[in-house]
Design a protein around this nucleic acid. Sequence first.
RNA 1: AGAGGUAUCGCCAAGCGGUAAGGCUUCAGCUUUUGGUGCUGGUAUCCCAGGUUCGAAUCCUGGUACCUCUGCCA
Length: 765
Amino acid sequence: MKPATPKSNFLRQIIDADLASGKVQSIVTRFPPEPNGYLHIGHAKAICISYGLAEDYNGTYHLRFDDTNPVAEKSEYVDSIKKDIAWLGFDWGEHLYFASDYFERMADIAVGLIEKGLAYVDSLSKEKIREYRGNLNEVGKDSPYRNRSVEENLDLFEKMKSGEFDDGEVVLRAKIDMESPNIVMRDPVIYRVLKAHHHRQGDKWNIYPMYDYAHCLEDAFEKITHSLCSLEFENNRELYDWLIEKTGMDPAPHQYEFARLNLGYTVMSKRWLKKLVVENHVSGWDDPRMPTLAGMRRRGIPFEAVREFCDMIGVAKANSLVDVAMFEFAIRDELNTRAKRVMCVLDPLKLTITNYEGENETLACPYWPRGFDRDETRPVHFSKTVYIERSDFSETPPKKWKRLEKGVEVRLRYAYIIKVNEVIKNEEGEIIELLCTYDKSSKSGSDTSGKKVRRVVHWVDFKTSIEVQVNLYDRLFINERPDVGGDFSLEKELNPQSLVEKKARIETSIVNDDLDTRYQFERHGYFWRDEASDSKAIIFNRIVSLKDSWAKENAKSAPEKPKEKKSSTPRSSEPVMTWRDRVRGENAQLQKDFEEYKSLGLIEVDADVLSGTPSLSHFYKAVSDKGGNPKNLASWIVNVMLPFYDDHFDYSTLGFQPQVIANLIEQVESKSITSAAGKKIFEMIFEGERRSIQTLIEDEGFKKVTDEATLLKWIDEVMVENPKQLEMYKGGKDSLFGFFVGQVMKKSRGAADGVLVKSLLKDQL
RNA sequence: AGAGGUAUCGCCAAGCGGUAAGGCUUCAGCUUUUGGUGCUGGUAUCCCAGGUUCGAAUCCUGGUACCUCUGCCA
């Protein structure tokens, strides 16, 4: 029933590694909303990630209100956010925090920064600050106030605090680097003057910390180990780490970023959600069509479905747009097992059984379908006249029609088999009633008619059924990505059918149920009572419709989607300018090396890489001085050795002689060891192994194995150990060949002769 | 133009040099008194181009596309 969820993601890998290395003993995560609005499904993803991870790893999670900007924040939002998170089933226990509770501490730390000469008060205007910051292409320049003395800064900051400056007059800035390629690092503002009323601190403060300054400190104060946020903060991480380091916070929290959720046919940004509410396109933040948690709760979506959905979509760093079908699946999957089935007719049409003689009767109808291991029933009234769904009768039935048509027997669900004999229409030609006859012996449960009728139709009793209002909700927008591309105008994007209100008729049994009962109205969808419902006027919200494959079948063949061709960019024949070309442009020696390497017969890219830095070039020369084929030497260094250094190759701190590498490559060249073994040996050297290559080969058995008998023995073993794969291979799964080669190679620890193994294996298989 | 990211099926998403997981969607079939549910089965060679290797989605080089950053918002 539960879909398998991705059990691995990059955050888990980070945590696993941190736990394994002892960097942390147990994890602490946090969800840090600003109390300036309502939570939506995107927040639910973030919460499920941070809190879910803490739960899974037996760690701790915090709820922290990041209330550093008093202007938009309200206690009302604090309450709604708490309610929403609790609804999702998370309990933060005693770990409820407010950034504003740390204001004193943060201000003290700012003083410390000033004392260290790492922060200064800037008197530049907002506009000037922007101008001085530069832009994406131009570096910034220093503020004229950047070099104020520590004393002056201390004095000025004190005055900011005590209210001697007005909003916007001065700011406190971190003194970092106005020429940093990362704009975030160009002396970011860390405190601003704001004489605003704070929802918890009142008028106590005249200054408020900025997010970048406050957030990392909050994490540190709370000893958060893994501070998870969305991708747009990637650029801010450098500042986060800078502040943690300069303020000496220990242990240091770390920030990791993941992609935020985008869901089709809805919007997630506060701006648009607010517009929907303010312009009355919806009834409020909790309108059942809203993607807010309050809206989903009112719609009747169980929180478990939201959680299941969050598990399903996983977490990664690639921007994505999740198909609503996935969310709908999660909701249906949850509701399917817990929603009682009842009958409700949304568009009633009268049907009279002309040969029905009794007054009425009561049928015991099961609440649950077969296979549910539940056998509760409810009484349902039945009489001579019932309502059926107008769309269940057709005068011109399409192919494969399974409902009513004239003269064909159909079962009234849980009741009798009937046959329509006559169609009564009004003056406009509209059908107003169907007259039919029934087979008295076909009563459901005691059917002695012997008939097998595959057509079924649901119904409610004419006299006793209750009229109710049903709200049929559908997606709010017409397009999958309403807020992308061009200017987004709500009027054009809104789905006019997002709410359809109907008068429907429902069986009486529902009056006895708890108000929060979830139902499946058979053949329609899942419903529950709206909170505005009362005993006189009952209102049902449709949570989600049933999956409808008939509609698809019936729809005209969908227009063929134009297949997007994967763009293949033609390879330009122009020689390309690499960053190394630029380096060489300023370093004649390297340029000379480059030319020399090429003349030695190196392929161009290897020559390019090896002459990219002085350190590398020296190293290559040192290795090739010892002899050997320059081309192969180069290729080995570039492709096998360099990846170990992850762009940080430094000859001077190498820890082994170039001679060693020359020897190693010679062994590979002379085919006395395989290249895989060569790589393994280098790995050992890289990690500090000091035995000679010769010794290593001897001691560790790296010598290339070309002995057929040994190889065949391994091959036999592999075939015996993997009977399943063997069978599949023989069944035609050729791609398994590589698997067998791999297994043999593994047995030999990479020492077997690959070519030989292949040919032997081919014979054996 | 700078910096930081990302690219695996229609949509999410595993994969970390040796069999291209899984879920959603979709298609086919079975069951069915819900055109629902359940069950069975099918559907990708990994953005492009080179290179290294017995073997590359994974390593190297170079491209391309998309996202984020120029608030005294978070």
